[in-house]
Each structure stands twice: as C-alpha cells, then as structure tokens.
Write a protein that binds this DNA or RNA. Structure first.
Lengths: 208, 208
DNA sequence: CACTCAAACTGCAGTTACTGTACGAACAAT
DNA sequence: ATTGTTCGTACAGTAACTGCAGTTTGAGTG
C-alpha cells in the first residue's frame, strides 16, 4: 500500500488477473462478467479497462508468448540439417503469458484448453510470434538455397514453414491427438507423431 | 414480394448479405454497424439477428466451407504415394460460404483477406472442415501403417497432418507469401513453394 | 371461402463489453 | 506550498446481441 507508485499498477493488475482466473475456473467463461471481476477485485469497471483492453486479456494475461533469445541464437548457430527438429526445439521455448506466477500460468493452461474462445486468442497471439519466426526462418533457410533461388522465394518458404509450425504448435497445445489433455507444449509427443507421419509424406509433390 | 413464403427468408438473407458486403467494402469492417446494414436492407435489427447470429456471419456468409464429396472419393481411391499432393488437391475444392453467387463470393474473398477479424472467422470455420478431414486422412494413412502401429497412433498422425494442412490453407489464403494479394486458394503457387521447402526439411527428426 | 396455424417480421426493453471525458486523490520533485 | 504525474473513480454513451410479446401474411384444411 505504501509501495512506490509505479508498483501499484502492477499489483492491481495481478489482483485483477487472479480474481479473473479464479472466477472463470469456478463459473466458466461466459458466466463471468467484467462487473463480477471488478467487484471481486474491489475496483471500478473503468479501472479494469485501464489495465486490460478486453475481458479475455485479463483472463489469459496481458503479455503473449515470446520466443527465447538464447534459443534463437542456438537455432541460428545450429549446423544440423534437421531444420524441422531445430524449429521444434525453438518453439518449445514459447511461454504463455506472464510466467512469473507458476500457479497462475497452470490455471491459465486449464482455461485455454477448456474454452474455445481462449484457445482462439492464444492462437491469435501466436501470430505475432509467427512474424518474428519468419524473420528467423529466413536467415536459416537462406543457408540452404537451391541454385537460382531468389530472396523472395526463400521468404515465401519461410512464410509457409511458419504456418506449418503454427499448425504443429496448435496440435501440441490441444494435446497431441484426440482424447488428450491440453497443456503446455509436449515436445516429445509431438516429435514422436511427427516422426511417424513424415516418412509417409516423403514422396515428391507432383511438380517437385 | 409475392414470392412463396418459404423463399422469402432466403431472399431476405441474400439482401442482408449483399448490403453487408457492399457496405463493408465501402467503409471497412469497423465502420459498418448492424443498424446501417438493417437500414440499407429495409429491415429491423431484430430481423437481422433472426437471420444471422452475428454481424460477422452476415458479412462472410452463413454456411462455412465444405469439402467436395467427389474430391473425397477421388482422394480415397488414389493409389499415389504422394499423400501430401493428394491432400492439396482435396483441399483446393474448399469453397467459402454460399457459392451460388459468384460476385458475392469474390467480394467476400477480398474482405476476408483484408480484415483480420474475418480471416479469423474463416479459419474458425475451417476447423469444422478439419474434423471431417481427420476422418478422411485416417482412412488414407491407415494404408501406410508402419509395423506395430496402433490405430490411435494413426489417428494422431491424421490429426497432426490436418493441422499442417490448415497451415497450408492459411498460407494459401493469405496470398502465398508476403506482398501477395489474398484470394481463393492458389494451388499452383502453394505447390511450388511447398516443393521448394520440403527438400530442405528432408532429414530425419532426431528421434526418427 | 372462412379458419387456423405458423413463419417472417417488428418494437422494445435489457444485458454485456467497451470507450470518452472529466474529475479527484496521492505522492514526488521543485 | 506548488506543480505535475500517475492511479483510480464517476458518469454517460455506443454497439452487439437476447428475450419477449405482438402483428402481418401466406399456406393448408375443412
């Protein structure tokens, strides 16, 4: 309470987040209104929206997933020909929301897997990561250019690959197949299924 | 006006759709309110929501993309080892919204590519297609099972593959790389980029 | 033709998410 | 003390959407 001013904002945000997650875990996403969260947090509705642009943001967390700097450096430095494997390694370091409260993060994963609207949002946020990813992939793919390949072609490949990776991430988040529980990225499981699937796709596309 | 009653609903729906698309093309998604569409269509707001559950639905169309029955039969009958190529062929037959008005469909593609919220929705709808796709892929992949592979593993592979395909579709819709215009699926372009990318990923994942 | 029923449509009041504006309280630096 | 910034509040408004009650109109039945 007698904290420095700059910290009070963060404290209030955390309070809101915690009550939001708790309420949604208890009553479900649709049954929880912003007013309920405000009352529980002891703030006005206007304050709520000063902290979070939308109700969803308060529940899932204000900051989206980020790629780990060190992982990027490792990825770019790798000599391996197994680009896909390296990409998986890179993507495995995505963290959902603010990771400074493990209990909150765990609760969020539950909610994300349970509520389509939230999974939705998490995927939206992946898109911003995806844009970063494209830039990184361009650098890596450029080391494998075919003769006569233009920079634009390389970029298109990186773009496509980033979409493929997004698909893999989603598969991973939704639990790696039907009947599985959603949760943070399960890299081993994903690699396993991918390792089974890829050989079946090995043959050249018709236009090679 | 003196149409049979059963047809009037459809007529009204079409009227709403056309005005909605036109207005959004003119003013942009956010600048168009439901009230504006209602006034242009000469109906009440309540009627609007009797026809379409959300504003977005009126703009993008009530029915989502569907897979073509004949294409599915062809896909399942194919002897080719090029599963991915066959999947692309299958997916190319996805049609957005009601296809009975080509001008409307074309306008919709413009909007979808231009407006993130709409692309979003179109992707959501792909998910229902994706569920169908998984069932189809299971049948096809089952013909390539590795020794000792369980049905559950095959299903997981089909699941993963469907996510990869969703990524490819999205790449395709967004124009096949940066700086391209969004539009209906450009299969040739996609195949080209995919053909360039795949050889670079050829090596085995670490767990093979 | 008269009667009935249901589909299409309307008006209205209400809820929920979210925004703009203006204002007050607290605290830090001058 | 004053000034300024930050955090929060109060209030009024918009836009999407829902529920309910009611009217019109076309279609089927006797």
């Amino acid at each position: 309470m007698e904290r420095p001013r700059s910290a009070r904002h963060a404290v209030t945000s955390r309070t809101i987040e915690q009550h939001a997650v708790r309420l949604v875990l208890e009553h479900g996403f649709d049954a929880v209104t912003v007013d309920m969260i405000c009352e529980a947090s002891g703030i006005s509705q206007r304050t709520f929206f000063n902290h979070f642009p939308t109700k969803i943001d308060a529940i899932v967390g204000a900051v989206g997933p980020r790629v780990d700097e060190a992982a990027v450096r490792r990825f770019l430095a790798s000599d391996s020909d197994d680009i896909l494997g390296d990409v998986l390694e890179l993507v495995a370091h995505l963290a959902p929301g603010t990771s400074d409260d493990p209990a909150l993060a765990a609760a969020r994963w539950q909610l994300i897997g349970r509520t389509p609207a939230l999974l939705q949002l998490e995927m939206d946020r992946m898109i911003s990561v995806q844009r970063e990813l494209v830039e990184i992939l361009v650098l890596r793919l450029a080391r494998h250019t075919a003769p006569g390949e233009t920079a634009e072609q390389t970029r298109a490949q990186a773009d496509l690959l980033s979409y493929l990776v997004a698909g893999i991430v989603r598969f991973s988040i939704e639990g790696g197949g039907p009947g599985r529980e959603p949760g943070p990225l399960d890299l081993d499981r994903t690699r396993e299924v991918l390792g089974q699937l890829l050989p079946k796709l090995r043959s050249e596309p018709t236009r090679g």
